[in-house]
Write a protein that binds this DNA or RNA. Structure first.
Lengths: 341, 341
DNA sequence: CTGAAAGCGCTTACAG
DNA sequence: CTGAAAGCGCTTACAG
């Protein structure tokens, strides 16, 4: 028998009602259907090569074991960026471990070519049991609607909404920056400056907060330098012996300039990057040349974030309540931090 | 109104039947429903924030604009390999352009942890309109069943089945190898040898066929060397001035050995790789160290193959007949081929 | 214990 | 022109 086979067809062959076929297929205790009937149905099942239609099952109320992945940008970018990869790796691993399939929402919204959750009246995500959302773009209106619909979703990256609780998995920039400060302190540094960037995004805000908290704890006056020019930045950092730096470009610039002045890293000056190179920069029109330096830094645990998001989503689908989580970053010792000499 | 809103609920609010709501939503010519009724329905639609349930729509017979992607191995591998990437890139681009979402089948089969299409009686792919399959693993039984079911699918990589026509997109190793031979010929080479590998996979068979055809065309006796040891291989190649090589490892070995003997590449000896480094090797337990040589070679057009597979799949879903396609490879001039001196 | 009926949300052929 | 009925494939509460 070719093409689609339905329970009804199987039933006709076996000489039973369609419902019996379903019972044989899903019967919890195998006590419901008489052995003889069961035998005939199983025979017909085999001979027809019946396969269940998930759409029908899902419509009836059962879950599909499908998790959506929605990204505002393309998932397999060709550029250097490719910063989704580690997230997706974690998502896929966890989904596979938990027995879920992944639905990638790739079809574009009509508007400006930018992807969107809602197309007209349709919530595209609905076909999945729940959805992981990622990407830097943030549409508050869509977010609010998602919350209102009570559709299960988890964001990767901190996301807040006035319309209600949003589940997300973020990286703990505050704690990680504190950790780096403490690390420098243990290495004997007593003048530790923060080279920040002129932005007010959450990661930047959080790094500053972490830095300030750590400085306060050691009763030191925070020294936050927001400066584009490496030369000026280094001058403003004064006699600091350790620099916590937010941007790879700035770190490269400062290090290069310092070395022209006979200041060696890490012998005379320790430098630590606060996170991987910023995806914002990587995706920008001016790609930052890859630095060969083995920077001391902390790493955003992207893979774990992906896995965690999937776990949270599964809980949500099962009826759990939204919650948010910040994951610690792992410190990479690297070659640009050393004990104060 | 929170949670799921159905057409029935909207209808009740608007004081019409559920079918009218559907008509307002999908009405082809806007002539079917009276303006006043339409207005009331649209009002109710807005106030409730109704979103269509794709499952219901699909069940009713419409397509769901979902294409499956099934791989026998993990899709986002962490290892060096990652040879799915270019395929996926093409698949995603084309799917997005055509307005399809992608369903990644990640949940594992029960058996040995290896993924499989059929789990018991269920064809898991069925939830998608059709499916792109990729991966080196090949299960003839599953393939036969897929064909028999008339489920629309397209393989990436040549795949034949006795059970019927299989759609696939492959790389044209025969033509590409011929092209390389002709290229060497134009450069003045008259003794062109093929360094093959001791395998009988389709790509190897095809490369040999292409090589032989080209040699025949120029009335040259083919010289095919199948040899593991670079030293022996080079000796067997005799006074050939151009070598077409199947494996990167062998190419590296031969080049290194040749240079110890004072034979320079490409001055004294031209070498061309027949394809990118073999994924088989990359995925093996003994990863081949990445060669720094800018090899002259032809490249498997993985991205295009992915895109083409999606296009073919969409045709298949729309009722087209299975067909197979071989895509030409692009020649990369590289630095290991030169005119005969 | 066994099996027929109701209904999930939707679209469209069909009757008024 | 307009709108109510049938039915897509499935599961499970419910009646016999």
């Amino acid at each position: 028998m070719a093409g689609r086979v339905t329970q009804a067809q199987v039933a006709r062959i076996a000489g039973v009602s369609q419902a019996i076929v379903s019972l044989v297929l899903n019967g919890s205790d195998s006590v419901r259907v008489s052995p003889e009937t069961r035998r005939r149905v199983e025979e017909a099942l085999r001979s027809t090569g019946y396969t269940v239609d998930i759409m029908g099952r899902r419509l009836r109320g059962k879950t599909n074991q499908i998790l959506g992945v929605f990204t505002y940008e393309s998932v397999f970018p060709s550029g250097v960026a490719d910063f989704y990869r580690p997230f997706l790796l974690g998502i896929e691993e966890e989904a596979e471990a938990r027995g879920f399939d992944l639905l990638l929402f790739t079809s574009p919204g009509r508007k400006d070519g930018r992807r969107r959750v809602y197309e007209g009246e349709t919530n595209r995500l609905r076909i999945a049991d729940g959805c992981v959302l990622l990407g830097r773009h943030n549409d508050p209106a869509e977010l609010a609607r998602l919350v209102e619909e009570k559709f299960p979703f988890v964001f990767i990256g901190r996301r807040e909404s006035p319309s209600g609780a949003v589940s997300y998995v973020g990286a703990d920039y505050v704690a990680s920056t504190k950790d780096v400060y403490e690390w420098m302190w243990r290495l004997g540094h007593r003048k530790i400056a923060l080279l920040s960037v002129p932005e007010e995004h959450e990661p930047t805000v959080d790094r500053r907060a972490g830095y300030q908290a750590a400085a306060r704890r050691h009763r030191k006056t925070p020294l936050i330098v927001v400066e584009d020019d490496p030369e000026v930045a280094l001058r403003k950092a004064g006699d600091a012996t350790a620099l916590l730096v937010e941007s790879t470009a700035m770190a490269d610039g400062v290090k290069a300039y310092a070395e022209t002045r006979g200041i060696e890293v890490p012998k005379d000056l320790s430098m630590v990057l606060l996170g991987d190179p910023d995806p914002t920069q990587r995706l920008s029109a001016h790609p930052v040349p890859r630095s060969d330096t083995d920077w001391s830094m902390f790493r955003i645990p992207r893979r774990q974030m992906g896995a965690r998001a999937v776990r949270m989503l599964i809980e949500l689908v099962a009826g759990g309540r939204p919650k948010s989580v910040l994951l610690p970053c792992e410190i990479h010792e690297g070659a640009t931090a050393a004990a104060r000499n």
